[in-house]
Design a binder for these strands. Structure first.
Length: 496
RNA sequence: GGCAUCUUGGCCGAGUGGCUAGGCAGAGGUCUGCAAAACCUUCUACAGCGGUUCGAAUCCGCUAGAUGCCUCCA
């Protein structure tokens, strides 16, 4: 279904700093590249937020009927600790500290990364290439950049000549910086003697003898610079120019700026039509940071095993929380915010279970709400630069329609009911990527029959006005984490 | 210091020239043996000052405050 033909999607382009109508380079096809994690430690919750935003974008583009090729890389080499000559690869540093093979580090944290994303119900990208798997492509790219006069070799290392590049191109076009300002504001770092200018960045670094991760190249035994891998892998799989490039806001400069420069220098074109940057995740009003201790692992947030939050939160609640804010806004992770989201999420899931129980009538009478309008509002929200907060608002505020249908105030015919169900299901599950969470790890069938028995006993007690017994059942169950809910149709329960 | 972004009601968080965001919390109600849950109703806002405009939370300027990047970071 080529829905995109009937929808005008607009995307905020960080390059032009405005919303633009989305028109892919090849009609019907979308190429999207997102800078993935450097696998040298456990996945950070901020990474989860960024990748979740692009997961949602991937989902919506697919929903619109685009054929999407989504490339998200794994950085398993080349990411320098700092840009000085003494710079050490993050992976080898970790390997040295832990006395294990670099590829063991990579394997461990790649597995952790995938496990975590699975928990949060991420779709796998179309291609997940690794930097170490593309050393040859990177070497070729460096050779071309040198050939074109934008790279120079010093002591076996290769640097990108930013000043030379800036004579014919605009270094700073993405981050809105001027080279002269950068010159004035670059801090003096030790050991930069190899570079012609401090603004130059490494394309290839010669490895010291004790270095464990290194590859042969025309210039030295060494390893590629960090910015290079994304240029090599994105253009290999998506072409010299592609539609969307995403990543966290903190990668805008220098990483993405350098990608543009490398692509211009090697291929003569700017690589990306729409640059998208996701904003930062904070916790309790402060940037998450290992050095200040303002940090929490995803596992700890899920389990509640931490000193920052009252309890654990399920993956869908965290996803709902993140989807309630715009990917372009700073999001502050707080206890109150998560509690509020948990209630909101439960409410939405309740709406969907109600909706699934509604039976069609011969005619439709839904007051001043029309299913058609509701559906259009959902699309309008998403078409407006993937406004998931607006989408959630629409889904929530039309809850009165579902309640009205449920309690008989409104009626709906079969065609409209199908459309309504389809709308809620596709936006909530397929696009937002939320899941209806049944108590994971519990044998729900056995639990159901057990609690049903208790509900029956309680009903009998209440009928006999033996409230001591009925209240005891209710209160004891609540203490055990099972909440009874008395409704018109009888008593149901939920697990807290 | 430079560049950029942001400042919405008790809290979170959308919107962006005239028209209800939404959630949480609060208040009132329906239901209930009492509750809880659920549902219904309801309150409150656009940092300050000046300008543009018939009209500004929305555009422009200034002031104050916060944040990000400038060094590895999603």
């Amino acid at each position: 279904m080529e829905l995109y033909k009937n929808h005008e999607l607009s995307i905020y382009n960080s390059l032009t700093k405005q919303k633009e109508k989305f028109e892919p380079i090849t009609p019907g096809n979308v190429g999207m590249y997102v800078c993935g994690p450097t696998v040298y430690s456990n996945v950070h919750l901020g990474n989860v937020r960024t990748f979740m935003s692009f997961d949602m974008i991937f989902r919506y583009l697919k929903h619109l009927g685009y054929k999407v090729r989504y490339v998200r890389n794994i950085t398993d080499a080349g990411h320098l600790e700092n840009d000085a000559d003494a710079g050490e690869d993050k992976i080898s540093k970790k390997a040295r500290i832990e006395e294990i093979e670099p590829m063991e580090v990579v394997q461990r944290y790649t597995v952790d990364f995938h496990n975590m994303l699975n928990l949060f119900n991420f779709l796998p990208p179309s291609i997940e290439p690794t930097a170490t798997g593309h050393i040859i492509e990177q070497i070729e790219l460096i050779a071309t950049i040198i050939e074109n006069g934008f790279g120079y070799v010093v002591n076996g290392s290769v640097y990108f000549d930013v000043h030379k590049y800036n004579e014919t191109n605009d270094y700073g076009i993405l981050s809105k910086r001027k080279l002269e300002d950068l010159i004035h504001n670059t801090r003096a770092l030790d050991g930069q003697s190899d570079k012609k200018n401090p603004q130059d960045f490494a394309l290839w670094k010669r490895a010291e003898p004790q270095h464990i991760m290194k590859w042969p190249s025309p210039w030295s035994e060494g390893f590629p610079g960090w910015h290079l891998e994304c240029t090599a892998m994105s253009t290999k799989y998506l072409g010299n120019q592609f539609d969307i490039h995403g990543g966290g806001l903190d990668l805008k400069f220098p990483h993405h700026e350098c990608e543009i420069a490398q692509n211009q220098a090697a291929k003569g074109v700017s690589p990306v039509k729409y640059w998208m940057h996701t904003n930062m995740l904070e916790m309790n009003g402060q940037r998450m940071s290992k050095s200040t201790g303002n940090i929490i692992n995803p596992e700890q947030l899920l389990s509640g095993d931490n000193d920052k939050f009252d309890k654990g939160f399920s993956p869908s609640v965290i996803r709902f929380f993140m989807m309630q804010s715009s990917y372009k806004s700073v999001l502050d992770l707080t206890n109150d915010g998560l509690i509020a989201s948990e209630k909101g999420y439960n409410k939405l899931m309740e709406l969907i279970s109600l909706l699934d129980k509604i039976t069609p009538s011969s005619t439709t009478n839904t007051g001043d709400i029309s299913v058609e309008n509701l559906r259009n509002d959902c699309y309008a929200a998403m078409n407006d630069d993937f406004s998931t907060p607006m989408l959630i608002g629409t889904l929530m505020s039309n809850g009165k329609l579902i309640h009205g249908l449920s309690n008989g105030t409104y009626q709906i015919n079969e065609a409209d009911l199908t459309l309504l169900k389809e709308t809620y299901h596709s936006f909530v599950f397929d696009i937002l990527g939320l899941q209806q969470e049944t108590a994971a790890g519990l044998d729900t069938e056995k639990l159901n029959s057990t609690v049903s028995l208790l509900i029956e006993l309680r009903d009998n007690a209440r009928a006999n006005k033996d409230f001591a017994t009925s209240d005891r059942i209710r209160d004891q169950l609540l203490e055990a984490g099972i909440q009874l809910k008395d409704g018109k149709e009888g008593t149901t329960f939920s697990i807290n």
